[in-house]
Design a protein around this nucleic acid. Structure first.
Length: 287
DNA sequence: AACATTTTCAACCGCAGGAGT
DNA sequence: GACTCCTGCGGTTGAAAATGT
């Protein structure tokens, strides 16, 4: 990455000052951080002039808000954060800054990048427009349940709560349009996937070869409780109702989209871990 | 090890809207 | 109302890093 120096008009006047562009150096970061710690943030053009930085006010603002600000979180987005992004994006679309307000420590840039690199990649692999209703349905039917599952998994491994959790029995195909999941404690229906909707854009003529159903492992970590949802007050009510059912224990199971995904190298996909992929491929192979 | 390809993410740009004059 | 300046937003770019061959 090269550092550019450009002459720009400043406040409508040609000042002749050379403006730096490109990556920030440690010295510039220190200068900006020190200036803000004494003078506070805001008034970015004044800051740019007074601090001695050869940067535009805009550039200073961006560097501070997206990188230097002390409460900025670094590293991968947690499943909880990903879940929030998916839900909020389905409500508001590309309103990144609005979405970012619900994720403390994450910037609109982080979220925008996540969406473009991860979410749109999924859409491309499925050959679906990421802004389409179809993709929204995939997100709701597959991705969100998967994240909830992951959240619960993490929660269980952290708390070591295994003994009393009901075991998952497996998926039950009630009819061609309704796949539900039950657990072995109360045998209640826990979650239904609307196959009618899914089949609008996926070939479900042979259900067994198009879905990987791995519930028979009976791991307690497959279960999700209502508490998982209560962590996310912004989740849409209709989605809550649709997925909660009567039981307060959900045995939530994954349905991995086959065919189109299978043709891609899903092993490279952050959504699918190696265990999932192995089971999925085994299942698809023997069916 | 070397090169090619893909992914990530920091930083830029243009535009819109608000505030001040 | 017209103009200027500032700030914030969303789209895009491209270098660096990671991964594949």
């Amino acid at each position: 990455m090269s550092i550019n120096l450009t002459k720009k008009k400043f406040n409508g006047n040609e000042e002749g000052a050379e403006q730096r562009k490109g990556p920030w150096t440690l010295e510039e970061d220190t200068l900006l951080t020190n200036y803000i710690s004494y003078n506070g943030e805001g008034r970015w053009n004044l800051l740019a002039k007074s601090s001695g930085l050869k940067r535009t006010g805009k550039s200073c603002r961006l560097r501070w808000l997206n990188y230097l600000k002390p409460d900025i979180k670094r590293g991968n987005l947690t499943p909880q954060e990903q879940l929030l992004i998916l839900e909020l994006h389905s409500k508001w679309g590309n309103r990144w800054s609005k979405i970012a307000k619900y994720l403390p420590g994450r910037t609109d840039n982080d979220i925008k990048n996540y969406w473009r690199t991860r979410v749109q990649k999924q859409a491309r692999q499925l050959n679906i427009d990421s802004n389409s209703h179809k993709f929204l349905e995939v997100v709701r039917s597959f991705w969100i349940p998967r994240l909830i599952h992951e959240i619960k998994d993490n929660s269980n491994s952290n708390n070591n709560i295994k003994a009393d959790a009901p075991e998952f029995v497996g998926p039950v195909l009630r009819d061609k349009n309704d796949l539900c999941f039950i657990n072995n404690m109360d045998c209640s229906t826990s979650m239904s996937v609307d196959l009618k909707k899914i089949s609008q854009f996926m070939d479900l003529s042979d259900l067994e070869t198009t879905m990987s159903l791995e519930g028979s492992r009976g791991s307690s970590s497959q279960c999700v409780t209502s508490e998982d949802y209560s962590s996310f007050p912004c989740l849409e009510e209709e989605y809550m109702v649709a997925t909660m059912g009567n039981s307060d224990i959900l045995a939530l199971q994954d349905c991995h989209v086959a065919d189109s995904m299978y043709e891609e190298d899903v092993t490279q996909d952050p959504m699918w871990n190696m265990d999932d992929i192995w089971q999925f491929k085994e299942y698809a192979h023997f069916n």
